[in-house]
């Protein structure tokens, strides 16, 4: 139990952030919730009650976007976080030559300008791009893969693109966390002859659990709000195969006849999904 005196300290550390969040979020949240109950074209709005929620169920485009988003989440997030962890552990090794350069190199994708990156990704995965050329040279395929023109392959490109861009970003959090775990246990296990992969799974992973949970939840939110990659590489196509919820919200607001109320409703679908998924992740983390 906290004593009253220390709890005052606790609140005073939290308060500045809470006050700012209160000022800048409460009104916008209430306002957007209220907006989600309205229908109409542009600013000619009228109260629609649950009309937007009913529209969700009958909107084939929304259902496609929902499916794609969840698919990206389930397939991509575990791959990315596992990779980030492996890189972090490898680059935490003091005896590794040039680790500062390796770290910076692997971090680079997330700072590389989105413009450059999307132009380049598109050209690499073009019909006659370097990826197809390489695969055909190695005789892995005898026909160029229609990376960006086939709905299934376009999803693969997007998954590769997000993994490429965000693995290094996630790696930073692991690298930082590795500095604060107790090395003596680790050292002892090494002396006892526990093999590397077992040390990673049985010692490192449990000690990093809070950060793993953090990254899973943040990546869940990030993937549910996935926008940049699909907007810039595939524009949601072909045939909506890479349309995400966030891109759909953008289309509803800025590309189509503005449907502010409906766009707001789709936004809150993301919130509900995050609520469910975060609750599940917290539960799983606790049970372990």
């Amino acid at each position: 139990m906290q004593s009253r005196r220390t709890d005052i300290w606790g609140w005073s550390l939290i308060m500045p952030a809470l006050v700012l969040l209160g000022i800048f979020m409460i009104y916008p949240i209430l306002s957007s919730l209220w907006l989600s109950l309205h229908t109409g074209k542009g600013m000619n709005l009228s109260f629609g009650g649950a009309a937007n929620i009913l529209r969700l169920a009958e909107d084939p485009v929304f259902l496609r976007a929902l499916f794609n988003t969840l698919l990206f989440l389930v397939v991509q997030v575990p791959i990315m976080i596992a990779l980030a962890l492996v890189f972090a552990v490898a680059l935490d090794d003091r005896t590794l030559w040039g680790r500062a350069w390796f770290r910076t190199a692997i971090f680079l994708p997330c700072v590389t300008s989105l413009v450059t990156y999307s132009v380049l990704f598109k050209s690499m995965f073009a019909h006659d791009g370097v990826v197809n050329d390489t695969l055909m040279f190695l005789n892995f395929v005898d026909q160029p893969i229609p990376w960006l023109t086939d709905p299934g392959w376009a999803r693969v490109v997007i998954i590769i693109a997000i993994t490429w861009r965000w693995t290094g970003y996630n790696m930073i959090f692991f690298l930082a966390a590795l500095q604060n775990i107790d090395r003596s246990i680790y050292e002892q296990a090494r002396i006892d002859g526990v093999p590397a992969h077992a040390r990673l799974l049985r010692l490192t992973v449990p000690m990093l659990k809070p950060i793993i949970l953090f990254l899973f939840i943040m990546s869940t939110i990030g993937t549910l709000q996935l926008f940049d990659e699909v907007m810039n590489i595939t524009e949601g196509g072909p045939a909506d195969a890479t349309l995400t919820l966030s891109l759909y919200i953008y289309n509803l607001t800025f590309k189509f006849m503005p449907s502010y109320g409906y766009a707001s409703t789709v936004s809150y679908v993301i919130v509900v999904l995050v609520a469910i998924l975060s609750w599940l992740q917290f539960r799983l983390a606790r049970d372990k």
């Binding site: 969040l21 979020m25 009104y27 916008p28 949240i29 306002s31 957007s32 939110i221 549910l224 709000q225 966030s246 919200i249 953008y250 607001t253 502010y260 766009a263 707001s264 936004s267 809150y268 993301i270 919130v271 995050v274 609520a275 975060s278």
Partner: peptide, 13 residues
């Protein structure tokens, strides 16, 4: 939960 609200929804208010 507040973190998961897309910014676009709150931008206008």
């Amino acid at each position: 939960l507040m973190l998961s609200i897309p910014f676009g929804a709150m931008m206008i208010p």
